[in-house]
C-alpha cells in the first residue's frame, strides 16, 4: 500500500467512521456547538461515545476545541483540506474490487472452494 505520514494516517482513520463524518457535517452546518449540543444531535449514541469520537477527530486536527466558560465548543479545522483529500482517497480506494469479490465472481474457483471446504 501507499506510504503516508503519521498525521495523514490519523486523518484517514478518523474519517473512516460514519458517526465521525456526521459530526463533521454537523460542525459544517452549525456555528461552534458545545459537546452537549453535539451529543444531543446523536441521541442513539450516548455522550461518552460522542466524546470519544470528538477526541479522535481532535487528534487528527479535524476539529478544534474552544473553552467558553464552563462549556467546550467545537469547530472544524485546522486540518480541513487534509480531511477532504482523505475522503477522496478513501472513496477511490474503495472503488477497487477486492480479491474476495473477484474470487466470488469466478464460478470455477467458487466450486474449488466448496470442494476444499
Amino acid at each position: 500500500m501507499i506510504d503516508h505520514d503519521h498525521e495523514s494516517d490519523l486523518v484517514f482513520r478518523a474519517l473512516n467512521d460514519a458517526t465521525r463524518r456526521a459530526v463533521l457535517a454537523l460542525l459544517a452546518s452549525e456555528h461552534e456547538p458545545t459537546a452537549g449540543d453535539i451529543a444531543a444531535a446523536f441521541p442513539a449514541i450516548g455522550r461518552t461515545a460522542v466524546s470519544a469520537h470528538l477526541r479522535i477527530l481532535r487528534d487528527a486536527q479535524l476539529v478544534s476545541e474552544i473553552r467558553d466558560g464552563k462549556h467546550r465548543r467545537y469547530r472544524l479545522g485546522p486540518n480541513r483540506a487534509d480531511a477532504a483529500i482523505a475522503f477522496l482517497r478513501q472513496i477511490y480506494e474503495q472503488s477497487l474490487p477486492t480479491d474476495q469479490e473477484t474470487a466470488a465472481d469466478r464460478p470455477e474457483s467458487g466450486l474449488r472452494e466448496a470442494k476444499s471446504g
Binding site: I2, E93, P97, R106
Partner: peptide
C-alpha cells in the same frame, strides 16, 4: 491505489465495466 487480485491479468481486465460483476 493498489490492490492484488488472485486472477490473471486478462481476467481482471475483462471484469472491468461488466454488469453484475464486482464493483
Amino acid at each position: 491505489n493498489e490492490t492484488h487480485l488472485g486472477v490473471p491479468p486478462h481476467e481482471a481486465f475483462d471484469m472491468f465495466g461488466r454488469s453484475g460483476g464486482p464493483g
